[in-house]
Lab assay of single mutants.
Amino acid sequence: EEWMVEKALMVRTGLGARQIESYRQGAWIEGVHFKRVSPSGESTLRGTTWYNYPEINKFIR
């Protein structure tokens, strides 16, 4: 699984929702560690946020 939603990321990493938000707003790079995608497939600020687990795992190492 490369891309996953927040709940799956929480299960895989043990991070809480606030921790994920903090990383997203600070250290993680949009387009690398996470992306927002609307149902139409376009990038957007209001779409579902998807997280790239392999890239996040590399960051944590």
Rank of each mutant, 00 (worst) to 15 (best):
T13L: 07
S38G: 13
S40C: 11
S38L: 11
A27N: 07
N57Q: 15
R18M: 11
I29D: 04
W3E: 00
G16M: 10
G41F: 07
S38Y: 14
K35G: 03
E6I: 14
A8F: 07
S38P: 14
I29Q: 08
S40V: 12
I56N: 01
R46A: 15
A17M: 09
R46G: 15
P39D: 14
T13V: 04
V5Q: 15
G47S: 12
A8Q: 14
K7L: 10
R12S: 06
L15C: 05
G47Y: 13
A17I: 11
K58P: 02
E6C: 11
Y51G: 00
S40W: 09
A8D: 15
A17Q: 11
N57G: 06
L15A: 01
E42H: 08
V5G: 14
G16H: 12
K7C: 13
M10G: 04
L15Y: 03
R61V: 13
I56A: 01
V37P: 06
E30V: 05
P39H: 11
L9D: 01
Q19I: 06
V32D: 02
E30M: 04
G47C: 10
N57E: 15
T49D: 06
I20Y: 00
S38T: 11
H33N: 00
V37E: 13
S38V: 14
R24T: 13
F59T: 05
S40L: 12
P54H: 11
F34D: 00
L15I: 04
S38Q: 12
R18W: 13
T48K: 07
R46K: 13
M4V: 13
G26W: 12
K35P: 01
G14N: 05
H33Y: 02
A8W: 09
T44R: 08
S22V: 13
R12G: 04
G47D: 13
Y53K: 01
T13P: 01
Y51N: 00
S43E: 12
N52H: 06
Y53R: 02
Q25A: 11
Q25H: 10
A8H: 11
I56V: 08
V11T: 09
V37K: 06
G41C: 07
M4Q: 03
E42K: 08
V37Q: 08
R46L: 15
R12F: 07
K7I: 09
E2P: 06
W3S: 01
L9V: 04
G31A: 03
E1H: 08
G41E: 11
S38N: 11
A8G: 06
N57C: 15
A27W: 09
K58R: 09
W50Y: 13
K35V: 11
R12P: 02
E30Y: 08
I60F: 11
Q19H: 05
A27M: 09
V32R: 06
V5R: 12
G14S: 05
L9S: 01
I60N: 03
A27Y: 11
A27V: 11
T13F: 05
Y53D: 02
P54T: 15
W50V: 13
S22F: 15
Y53W: 12
L9H: 00
T49E: 06
R24Q: 09
I20N: 01
T44G: 14
Q19M: 08
L9I: 08
F34P: 00
I20P: 01
G14M: 04
T48G: 08
R36K: 12
S43Q: 10
V5M: 15
K58N: 10
I56W: 02
F59Q: 04
K35W: 05
V5H: 11
T48W: 06
V32N: 03
Y23H: 05
R24G: 03
A8E: 15
W28M: 02
S43I: 09
R24K: 10
Y53Q: 03
T49C: 08
W3F: 02
A17R: 13
W28P: 00
V11M: 14
R36V: 15
Y51I: 01
L9M: 04
Q25I: 10
G26C: 13
P54Y: 13
E1W: 09
G26V: 08
F59H: 05
F59K: 03
E55P: 04
P54K: 09
R12M: 11
M10K: 05
T13C: 05
V5A: 09
G16I: 09
Q19W: 04
E42A: 08
M4K: 01
K7N: 09
N57F: 13
R46H: 14
A17C: 07
I29V: 11
R36L: 15
E55N: 06
